[in-house]
Amino acid sequence: MNEEHKKTARPDFVSSAVICLASVVIFVLSLAMPKYEEWGLYATPSLAPMVFSITLFLCGSMMLVRSIIAKGYRISFSKEKTMTFLRSRILKHFLVALGFVLIYYVFFGVLHFVLISAVYLFLNIFFYRSTTWWKALILSVVYTGTIWYCFNYLFLIPLP
């Protein structure tokens, strides 16, 4: 057993289990596709999804077996570990970055482009304390305003 595989046994166990499950779902969905028998069964649209879902299942199973041999199924959730993870700077930064992305996506097209883009930029710059709030505000408005102007009047691509 490779040392590298031992290190990643737990995440590999979870990810390979998800992959196996997903491949089974794809195979079942493929079975439900029409057969178009007049073309011959080999021309059915489900052929390739079936073949590749089986291949995915085989690869996923190999990884699952490997992770089980490396005792990747021993996943323990201690309160202390969970709290350390939940309080970690990396998780906080990831959730904030993703949250801002999702907010930006949701309001894109609902609010004016300059407004929502400037808010997104300002929130990011402000959260990471990259510069003073007023510099962040000016930068956000000028940057998004310039993009909006260029696209609408120079590239002739209307933005919402």
Binding site: F108, S117, Y120, L121, N124, I125, Y128, T131, Y143, L159
Partner: peptide, 17 residues
């Protein structure tokens, strides 16, 4: 932390365009 959000705005614009 300033550059990446700026790049993301371009990603959104480019994808939407």
């Amino acid at each position: 932390t300033i550059m990446m959000p700026m790049v993301f705005v371009l990603c959104m614009v480019g994808t939407y365009a």
